[in-house]
Design a protein around this nucleic acid. Structure first.
Lengths: 126, 126
DNA sequence: TTGCTCCTCACGTCACGTGAGGTGGC
DNA sequence: TTGCTCCTCACGTCACGTGAGGTGGC
């Protein structure tokens, strides 16, 4: 799949996709002879996951780490110690994600208040 | 009120306050002899309003414009034409705010899904 | 061959953050 | 006088956006 189709499917810009490639967040699985980025279905799923994470305010580097942890946890034969360490890191991300979600909820309700204030102002000006 | 107290009350950083000053978004009402920024209660209220708007993703310039419209609508003697024009601009901002809020709500639910996925992964790894 | 898609620099932008070096004010 | 708060540059950063000039591929 070329970058254009991926951009359409993920609603991410061409530049964003190139930026994620350069940042090592989602490196396309292959390149064509001419150097065109070639994405697999798995790559696209990864990008969609990233899009879900974005509102939680993680940096690209943090998202890269989280995805790495998730990938490695998926591996079949993993030493028990490694698995435990990975789960600890995963829990750290979980906590951060939940805190960020709580903040988002609060921001949303403040934004809601603000919108109500605008409405009131409009009514008054009528 | 000096910048430090304002930072505490608004939970905005010193740098952010200076940046808003330079951007013309909230210019402190006065300066001390020595050049210290002096904020009034009105300035602080303005900053709190901005904090409410921030999640809606407006640029500093757009927030500046919106606040100007709101301020000018508050004026007592305003030609009818001006008032109508200001209300039009206000409605534009209202629409943008509502759209942004809708997007935020959607992002939040996607983030929620993501958190659930993380939880599931953690459970499975147990 | 044409035209659409893609490529890599390189520089710009937005909203700040981070020192460095210096001064104000109770 | 001391120490804490504040000041202005100037440069850095993060996540991209925006051309410029060139090439790939059906």
């Amino acid at each position: 799949m070329q970058i254009g189709e991926v951009a359409d499917r993920t609603r991410l810009s061409l530049n964003t996709l190139r930026h994620y490639d350069q940042a090592g967040l989602v490196v396309p699985s292959a390149r064509s002879q001419g150097g065109f980025r070639l994405y697999t279905e798995t790559d696209v799923q990864r990008l969609l996951t990233i899009r879900r994470m974005k509102p939680l305010g993680f940096s690209l580097e943090e998202m890269r780490e989280l995805l790495e942890v998730v990938d490695r946890l998926g591996a079949a034969d993993l030493p028990v110690d490694d698995r435990a360490a990975l789960r600890d890191r995963l829990r750290g991300f979980q906590r951060a994600a939940q805190e960020q979600r709580d903040k988002l909820v609060e921001q949303l309700s403040r934004a809601q208040e603000f919108i109500a204030t605008l409405q009131q102002l409009d009514d008054e000006a009528g």
